[in-house]
Design a protein around this nucleic acid. Structure first.
Length: 1003
RNA sequence: GCCCGGGUGGUGAAAUGGUAGACACGAGGGACUUAAAAUCCCUUGGUCCGUAAGGGCUGUGCGGGUUCAAGUCCCGCCCCGGGCACCA
């Protein structure tokens, strides 16, 4: 009988469903193992071949652990709140819940088709009120908590209120209590606290709550009418949708993650996560040790505060630089310099932060006219403004040490400011010396000290003078938590006299209200403001919703006890399942999800709800499966002309924009677009850069430069008289890979049909047709390069897909999707199947296996077992292939070999394994079979074939018994006639014998 | 600029410092077949010598080094991918 994957797979999936084969109980008599995949956002594009890569890997581990007797929790769900569904809702009026439901159903169907061992009874969806009830509940716990830096943990806010009532508050407690103070908070006594009105008390508490409302700089996206988190903004536009984003200050719900900065760093040491992810988190949190130094202003009151990691270089300070947005800039600048300074500030601020950071070489700045006083020398130090200092970092001011910092050096050199050497052996005429293993050579008490000692000494001195203190600085900011959107968890807060209060738990879940439109209101309020009666006991409810990462920050706990109505999960369930043993997902979540999820876990731990403070012990990042998208080049033309001498005739096909003395001719709307075939473009570029080749020579008369621009490609001749050179540039457009034949040839008819605007486009190409270029890109719907697993499953089956994705290479590595090799894994399964058949009849013998057959079996069991533990699945698939090839050659059809092999294959290819397992006469599922142990006795070799090398180059092989010791091997080798011949009678200088490895003869 | 990955045949890749290219795709040749599908066998890094058997040289991004022995370790570069942004 032929291997019929579609019959086997559909039958077994149905059977597993009927038998609830993958149902998991909280069975505390068995050891547990928790394998989790990062749950997907159910997008309209459906699942693509990139998604399952991680899911297959984790499914193999989950099944493997089950075979080893573990009770394995391996659930799946949906991160089902999100912007795409909302944007779709805005466009079509369709409720996001409906599209989400449809998309999830499609995902489910696709996931089922791959044969995953998920327990779907435990499915969670973040947009389900029974789930987000607990997201809201956790939010309230955060709102009702503060961070006690002395105890290093979160505590109920009631304890802080009691403390205020007894001791009041003093600003020196600031660091100890809040972690990140946004505004100055005046001191108050206990009796003052007790007599403040409610409003004042609540305002003060906002400074301590872990979820709090404050004025904050946010990334405002007008097009989406919403605020985006830092990690949701890419290149100044929203990551989803690509709309422009601007910095804006507004009231904003935030999470005080900064309170956990140190613990988030320290916790990394206990985790089995990849170094690159840990490093990314460390960099994101950005701890730096140093000192806060105060430079007293010469005129007037106050100090300029700077943070420095190098207080040892203080004697090298020759000026102080403020960021253009620094609040002191205006007040320190004397009237006579104000105009010049403020003019600079305005231009500098208008440059985007990104530009300012990217442009290291362009130095700009202005002297304010003010001076401050050096804390050690008492000398006057000029105060400058420079855009190389960023407002958002540290204190927004730096003490400039041009002798020890390259950027300060650049600034000083540019403006002719003095440069003092701070370290011995530095050549400050060429560059700054940033070495940290140097000796300080500047004047004063630091002279002659090594950098670390000098740092300590400098800080001691600053403290003594009251001019500074030791300070640890973090780059991490509090996380923005409110969204001006509809499709997210409502924040369970109401306002009484403008003061936020948490809803009582009995009011949860606070369900998303119905709205007429999913858009912000006309006066810019979030969509929830459209809802009728959006209030609690007459008090208005919060109208922003939670961000995408809220639900994913704790979902792993809900899987433990998904139906619990009285708690997010029962203490018993949490106690049993504990941390995630293996978490699999993409590394793009390094500083978003993976940081927040650790933060919430630590918080829940502090408040005593869970007994561990890291969510996932081991993390594996699967690489991206990339797509190969097709790009075509659109040609744009422009001509530089002399103003006034323009003659533009018949320009309907081109749209001209006059800018200064240049006319840009864009061939886009309303006229037809002009595209150029890749190879022709390359040819054109090559020749165009060579002045001896005029353009017309290879453009075949279609486009002619120098004085005249003619296009016949447009269907009619257009003549444009220009005075200067014609310039061209191209813009890349991505087209669907469906329109490509072979590697690069574009089917123009298909392309014209695909989208209206291609219908009347012009395509310039040679007789060989129009060619696109292929580029490796992220696989995504927007790139039109998505490969869907469904076609592969229907052609080859899920088992082949599973094996193939694993066979592609190491799990962490990114690679472009290519189905070229899939035949190999399909053939392997057919060969495996055929081991159970003889002339089309199922036939397995009970005969005892031979030594050779046992050796193949046990070598495979050993390799596969070890490889699964290392998550090296590509090599285990190879080993299965070797086993099948060898057993095929041995014509082995023996039960004692095939049965253990079937179990070992089951995690990889569960359908075929289950089918053969039943055919072998079993009535229980192969998933419950005990994992076969490999036995070293079958792997013992009698002989080893030594490679005999001369000076490291292998020349021949000689076989010796394994038991033979090194001396005897050496003697035997040297006695060999071929070796003798190669030695030509000379004695070897040295002979190295590594038992069971190699013999190397040095001549 | 900094940090983390990576660079091995036509392709995906393998290799505790110990025979580089396992396994698979593709390609070429052959067997079976009326034919095809399927299956099986052989060859397949480059290059040179040889009719052949066989043998030589060369080869893991580049240049050095350590070692009896380097894809693997060390130093210095180049390129690709990802992350971070000048925390002073």
């Amino acid at each position: 009988m032929q291997y019929d994957h579609s019959d086997i797979e559909t039958r077994w999936r149905e059977e597993w469903r009927k038998r609830s084969t993958y149902r998991v109980e909280n069975d505390t008599t068995k050891p547990k193992y928790y394998v989790l995949d990062m749950f997907p956002y159910p997008s309209g594009a459906g699942l693509h071949v990139g998604h399952p890569l991680g899911y297959i890997a984790s499914d193999i581990v989950a099944r493997f652990k089950r075979h080893q007797g573990f009770n394995v929790l391996h659930p799946m769900g949906y991160d089902s709140f999100g912007l795409p569904a909302e944007q779709y809702a805005i466009q079509t009026g369709q409720h996001p819940a409906k599209t989400t439901e449809e998309n999830a159903a499609r995902y489910r169907q696709q996931l089922d088709a791959i044969g995953f061992s998920f327990d779907w009874d435990r499915e969670v969806r973040t947009s389900d009120p029974s789930f987000y009830k607990w997201t809201q509940w956790i939010f309230i716990q955060l709102f009702e908590s503060w961070y006690d830096h002395e105890a290093q943990r979160a505590r109920p806010i009631t304890e802080l209120i009691a403390r205020f009532g007894e001791q009041g508050w003093h600003p020196t407690d600031a660091c100890a209590l809040t972690g990140d103070v946004e505004e100055e908070l005046g001191a108050f006594t206990a009796s003052e606290w007790n007599t403040f009105d409610e409003r004042t008390n609540q305002r003060i508490l906002q400074h301590f709550r872990l979820a709090y409302l404050s004025e904050a700089w946010v990334n405002w996206c007008p097009a989406l009418g919403t605020v985006l988190a830092n990690d949701e903004v890419k290149d100044g536009v929203s990551e989803r949708g690509g709309h422009p984003v601007e910095r804006k200050r507004m009231p904003q719900w935030s999470m005080r993650i900064t309170a956990y900065a140190q613990r988030l760093i320290d916790g990394l040491d206990t985790l089995d996560w990849s170094d690159s992810i840990k490093e990314a988190q460390r960099n994101w949190i950005g701890r730096s040790e140093g000192a806060l130094v105060k430079f007293k202003l010469k005129a007037g009151e106050g100090n300029i505060e700077v943070f420095t990691t190098r207080p040892d270089t203080l004697f090298g300070v020759t000026f102080v630089t403020l960021a253009p947005e620094h609040e002191l800039v205006e007040s320190v600048t004397p009237t006579e310099r104000r105009e010049e300074v403020m003019a600079y500030v305005t231009t500098a601020k208008n440059r985007s932060e990104r530009d300012r950071m990217a442009d290291v070489k362009k130095v700009s700045g202005v002297f304010t006219g003010a001076y401050c006083i050096h804390p050690f020398t008492g000398k006057e130090v000029p105060v400058w403004v420079g855009d190389y200092v960023l407002g958002g970092y540290g204190t927004g001011a730096v003490m400039a040490v041009p002798g020890g910092d390259q950027r300060d050096w650049n600034f000083a050199t540019h403006f002719g400011l003095p440069i003092i050497a701070v370290t011995e052996g530095a050549d400050i005429s060429k560059e700054a010396d940033e070495r940290k293993d140097a000796i300080i050579c500047s004047e004063g008490f630091l002279q002659g000290l090594a950098v670390p000692e000098a740092i300590t000494r400098a800080i001691d001195e600053l403290v003594k003078l009251g001019a500074g203190e030791r300070r640890i600085n973090y780059r991490l900011r509090d996380a923005a938590f409110g969204r001006q959107r509809y499709w997210g968890e409502p924040i369970p807060i109401y306002y009484k006299d403008g003061v936020p209060y948490a809803l009582p738990e009995s009011e949860l879940p606070l369900k998303l209200p119905e709205v007429d439109k999913f858009l912000p209101t006309e006066d810019g309020e979030p969509p929830l403001a459209r809802a009728a009666n959006w209030s609690y006991q007459g008090h208005p409810l919060e109208t922003t919703t939670m961000p995408g990462w809220a639900g994913s920050s704790w979902y792993f706990l809900r899987y433990m006890d998904p139906q619990n109505e009285g708690r997010f999960a029962s203490p018993e369930a949490i106690d049993y399942w504990q941390q995630i043993d293996l978490y699999v997902g993409g590394s793009e979540h390094a500083t978003g999800h993976l940081l927040y999820f650790r933060f919430w876990t630590k918080f829940l731990h502090d408040r005593g709800y869970i007994n561990f403070d890291e969510p996932a012990k081991k993390l594996v990042n699967q690489g991206m499966i990339q797509g190969r998208s097709a790009h075509i080049q659109r040609l744009n033309l422009s001509a530089t002309i002399n103003a006034g001498s323009t003659v533009l005739d018949n320009t309907e096909s081109f749209v001209g924009f006059q800018k200064g003395d240049a006319v840009a001719l864009y061939n886009h709307a309303p006229g037809p677009k002009l595209f150029i075939s890749t190879e022709l473009l390359n040819e054109w570029k090559r020749v165009h850069s060579d002045p001896s080749h005029p353009v017309e020579r290879f453009m075949n008369g279609k486009l002619v430069s120098h004085g005249k621009l003619v296009s016949q490609a447009m269907g009619e001749e257009i003549t444009i008289h220009v005075g200067g050179d014609v310039e061209h540039w191209t813009t890349s457009t991505i087209i669907p890979t469906d329109c490509i034949e072979g590697e690069t040839l574009v089917n123009l008819d298909m392309l014209r049909q695909w989208r209206d605007d291609f219908a009347d486009s012009q395509f310039i190409h040679k007789d060989s047709g129009f060619h696109a270029s292929r580029e490796v890109d992220k696989m995504s719907k927007s790139k039109w390069n998505v490969v869907n697993p469904d076609d592969i499953i229907s052609k080859y089956g899920a088992d082949t897909l599973r094996l193939y994705e694993m066979f592609l290479g190491p799990i962490e590595q990114s690679k472009p999707w290519d189905t070229n090799g899939i035949e190999g894994t399909f053939r392997f399964l057919r060969k495996f199947w055929n081991l159970f058949y003889e002339s089309d009849v199922f036939s397995v013998s009970d005969e005892a296996p031979t030594k050779a057959e046992f050796k193949v079996l046990h070598a495979t069991l050993k390799k596969v077992t070890e490889d699964i533990e290392k998550m090296s699945f590509n090599t285990s698939v190879s080993q299965f292939m070797i086993a099948v090839n060898e057993l095929g050659a041995l014509k082995c059809h023996k039960r004692d070999v095939l049965e253990p092999l079937t179990i070992a294959l089951a995690p990889f290819a569960p359908h075929i394994a289950e089918e053969l397992w039943q055919k072998l006469g079993h009535t229980t599922s192969v998933t419950t079979a005990i994992w076969p142990k490999w036995d070293a006795q079958h792997l013992v070799e009698d002989n080893f074939s030594y490679p005999i090398s001369f000076n490291g180059k292998t020349r021949l092989q000689l076989e010796f018994p394994i038991a033979l010791d090194a001396k005897s091997v050496e003697a035997a080798v040297l006695a060999n006639p071929e070796v003798q011949q190669r030695l030509e009678g000379k004695a070897p200088k040295k002979v190295i014998v590594v038992p069971k490895r190699i013999v190397n003869i040095v001549v």
